[in-house]
Design a protein around this nucleic acid. Structure first.
Lengths: 339, 339
DNA sequence: CTGAAAGCGCTTACAG
DNA sequence: CTGAAAGCGCTTACAG
């Protein structure tokens, strides 16, 4: 089979223990021995077996990245590769590997997380989403598994390491911006309502209205669930009510452009008839027509920090949970207009 | 520490060997014993330790997915999450885990692949790209590592399992389509030239021209390298030559929209002045202005089949290499016009 | 500075 | 149908 530590030991005329110590760069091994052993390792093409090493070390040097393997537009967008890139960079620096969930449904994800943590396939977990009543998060918390969350946890935020934008605040700013432009009939087209990020942004939207003395209109809110499979009708319904909105906040740039195309079908032009703002600052959004005003949420940084946070917990059992708020910035472009 | 097979054995009053056999659902264990042991496993919350199991089995039940952790627009696009979704579905069915590369540079990727295969962290590899002179592919081939490639290998295609579109053919079709519309001055804005997919598409483009008796014009080809960091100037240069193209084939929808925006800056309208076709059928492309004619390359299927192919090789040493060609379809929308 | 021995948690011929 | 024993490839007190 493959070259083992024993083969190296034999050729270098030392014990396997010594070879092991050379690998670990143990200070008490003489430079001479180290040199000789390393030369043999090189010559034989030795690579340490992770399984064996991890078995005795009781760790895996890998982080599990958990996401919903979903098909919705929200997961089609560049958020995923970008956050993963951030995670990769940080994990790579600490020499940790990345293990990806492959499950599609909630129950499967739960099973997979339990198996990968109990089975020691990973040392910690990054949750790429945060939703209400998430059993995965409950499990991780109860079993003291090192983990971090991208997004605000639905329970015990003080006990959990997470990274997030200040979604309430930035959403409020977005609304303020539209109000400054003279809008008062402002709609909110949000994500799935069990996701905390959606709830937070809706909340900020409401606060923004309130601060401006504008009453909240339930009819102005369109959730993911209302869109699902009948996006066009949902938008039509939104626009054909008595006082249709003159501005729309959407939870994602891709959704914004989708909405714009439905508005077009209804002969409603952006921004002349309706202003619109997205979220996530898609690479393309500056190039498209209209160039989309949007919120840049620093996705890459979200990933880097999420990885840093789990790593912190993995390396130190009793590291206190930390929260990191990554800046979100409103970027004004051409999709909004004075009323 | 965690519950081990010994704990279960003790409580169930059997030997560890028996517990192991129950886990494996060995046929020779009595149903009664199985029931009893399973009950104890349940009660104690036993989960098998992957490291230990894999160490003796000499396998990891995981597939390494290798990609360049790059920032270019090409990797910002939905190709990555979509192909990964396909891979996930197939891997999940076979109960294999997914291990992701975290390296950014070619050398690092090489090191990482060698370490993860030699170190038995993964049983096989999926290469998400194919480029000329790729040392990773050479290594995998030489060392008989089970692997598959998304894209046509640059060497020994008959010896390697890969999944691909017929990029030459589809590219030729795209050119034919434009020629049918009356275009003769057709430009090709391609990807990085060391990628096989780019080479194949360029090749199909050339063949398409040739078949129509149109001479190839080097000035009509813009590569990734020529764009890098000066996209706008590259497009300007393309359009300001003596006989500017009246149609442009781009290797990706996102790039197509980027180009469209530069054309706009030059007061060139799509499709009235210039026709344009993309690749990859981005979710948004039907919604944007203009709705983009594009090529759907069945990304999800590419992923599923790539996983199937490695799995085939992992499960059977001497499975013959297979190639799968996934259909690519030209989708006509509003970005092309009769000349 | 180095080695012999035990052990990480599992599996699997071998024996009965 | 089940158990005792050896072993997968490594690490790490312990001893010298």
């Amino acid at each position: 089979m493959a070259i083992t530590i024993k083969d190296v030991a034999k050729y270098a005329e030392v014990s396997p223990a010594t070879v092991s110590r050379v690998i670990a760069d143990h200070p008490k091994i003489s430079p001479k021995t180290k040199r000789r052993v390393r030369k043999v390792m090189e010559e034989l093409g030795y690579y340490p077996n992770f399984q064996a090493r991890n078995l005795v070390a009781q760790k895996s040097k890998a982080i599990g990245v958990i996401m919903e393997n979903s098909t919705t537009l929200a997961f089609q967008n560049p958020f995923f590769p970008e956050v993963l890139r951030g995670i990769s960079v940080s994990a790579h620096q600490s020499q940790y590997g990345l293990y990806l969930s492959t499950s599609a449904t909630e129950t499967e994800i739960y099973e997979e997380v339990v198996a990968m943590t109990q089975g020691k396939r990973v040392d910690g977990i990054i949750l790429l989403y945060s939703k209400t009543g998430d059993k995965v998060m409950d499990y991780l918390l109860e079993n003291d598994v090192p983990f971090s969350v991208v997004g605000r946890p639905y329970i015990q935020p003080e006990a959990i390491s997470f990274v997030d934008n200040d979604n309430v605040e930035i959403s409020k700013q977005v609304v303020h911006h539209l109000i400054t432009l003279g809008h008062r009939n402002i709609s909110f087209v949000g994500g799935a309502s069990d996701f905390i990020v959606s709830a937070d942004r809706l909340n900020g939207y409401k606060q923004g209205l309130k601060e401006a003395g504008i009453p909240f209109t339930a009819n102005y809110v369109v959730t993911q669930e209302m869109m699902e499979g009948r996006e066009k009708q949902a938008i039509q319904q939104l626009m054909e009510q008595e006082n249709p909105p003159t501005a729309i906040v959407t939870h994602d740039d891709l959704v914004a452009y989708e909405v714009i195309s439905y508005l077009e079908d209804l002969d409603i032009a952006v921004p002349s008839d309706v202003s619109i703002i997205g979220f996530n600052n898609h690479t393309l959004s500056s190039h498209l027509k209209p160039p989309l005003s949007t919120v840049d949420i620093s996705i890459f940084d979200l990933g880097v920090e999420a990885a840093n946070l789990v790593l912190e917990k993995i390396k130190d059992d009793k590291a206190a949970p930390r929260n990191i708020i990554v800046p979100a910035t409103l970027i004004e472009r051409g999709s909004c207009q004075n009323l």
